[in-house]
């Protein structure tokens, strides 16, 4: 077991070095994708399936966005002259910092024996108190829902920031390539896959309190499905364009719904007070409060991620091209 983990770690480090040192930007983006996928396997091995799912899907979207973004600018000749001073000083700082922070590792519990002072309580009481047998979800959406609210705000802000920055930019007319979509084979496969992906995403989100997943993971899965549809059928195909128009509103609606769920807690006493019954364990309706929050987050993440993707990777150039031009 340990050997596998070591092997994967070394693989990640090698991948990271390749990603940074390869001259071709496309290759380094692919290398970073490899690092991310390796990381998700590592998460799975380390007993964190929730994170593994999220990591896989996020990595897919990140790589897609990065490739679409760098595709146009990778032809720029990277400056050959490496600044020796910069490399030397950067290395020195990194190495010194490395050793300084390595000194702190001594104070951590040994690998494989976590301290788990608070977490023990979460594990003991989580399922009974929240009705969620997935303790990660119990922590995320019940015990520490405040944190999650803050994090959701960060995501919303980042996406809104990205949209605001890109909006109004003059994009080179590249829309036709995206509009056309991909070859027949890809389309046919996608047609089959899309439904599965969407159902999977919904299931991951809805059953998040019982099985690995939750709103964050499910949201990214759904967004990933829409990304696939956009790339395969083209940006003007019905699924892409309809949801594309809605996406930022879905994002905002999800965030507001999450806030509303939290605010409704005031009826029971305070912010984030649970206002629904626990129900029977191991059933979908067992922790309805968490299910509701998961759905809100699902909307939020799906809308946000897809809106960001559309803005960054599908280049709209002002008015839509005339119908006749598209032949």
């Amino acid at each position: 077991m340990d050997v596998t983990i070591y092997g994967l770690l070394v693989f990640l480090i090698a991948g990271a070095i390749v990603a940074l040192e390869v001259r071709d930007l496309l290759s380094s983006v692919i290398a970073i994708g490899v690092v991310g996928l390796g990381l998700s396997i590592l998460f799975l091995l380390l007993g964190a399936p929730d994170i593994a799912i999220t990591q896989v899907v996020v990595e897919v979207i990140v790589v897609t966005v990065l490739i679409r973004a760098t595709a146009r600018i990778s032809d720029e000749p990277a400056s050959r002259r490496t600044d020796r001073f910069a490399v030397a000083s950067g290395l020195i700082v990194a190495v010194v910092l490395f050793f300084l922070s390595a000194g702190a590792l001594v104070h951590l519990p040994a690998f494989g024996q976590p301290a788990m002072t608070v977490s023990r309580w979460y594990l003991e009481q989580g399922p009974a108190l929240t009705g969620a047998t997935n303790v990660v979800m119990a922590i995320l959406l019940d015990f520490r829902a405040y944190d999650t609210l803050g994090e959701a705000t960060v995501i919303l802000t980042a996406i809104v920031g990205a949209l605001a920055i890109v909006r109004g930019a003059e994009r080179p007319v590249d829309a036709r390539a995206t509009d056309a979509g991909m070859s027949l084979v890809v389309r046919a496969v996608t047609r089959w896959l899309l439904g599965l992906i969407l159902i999977f995403g919904l299931a991951v989100a809805l059953f998040g309190h019982l099985t690995p997943g939750g709103g964050f993971a499910g949201g990214v899965v759904l967004a990933c499905g829409f990304v696939l549809a956009t790339l395969a059928f083209g940006a003007r195909s019905p699924p892409a364009s309809i949801f594309g128009r809605l996406s930022s509103r879905v994002d905002a609606a999800g965030a507001l719904a999450f806030l509303l769920i939290a605010l409704l807690g005031w009826c029971g006493g305070h912010f984030f007070q649970r206002w629904l019954d626990l129900g029977r364990p191991f059933r979908l309706e067992s922790a309805t409060f968490i299910v509701l929050q998961n759905v809100a987050i699902l909307f939020k993440v799906t809308g946000g991620a897809f809106a960001g993707f559309l803005a960054l990777a599908v280049f709209r150039s002002g008015p839509a091209p005339e119908e006749g031009e598209r032949s």
Binding site: I51, V58, E151, T157, A158, I165, F216, A305
Partner: peptide, 20 residues
């Protein structure tokens, strides 16, 4: 795990912001 889960999705948002 609970903390990292949101951190990953935040990372996605950050990448989008930086790419933008």
């Amino acid at each position: 795990q609970a903390l990292v889960l949101t951190s990953i999705v935040i990372g996605l948002g950050l990448v989008m912001l930086m790419v933008a």
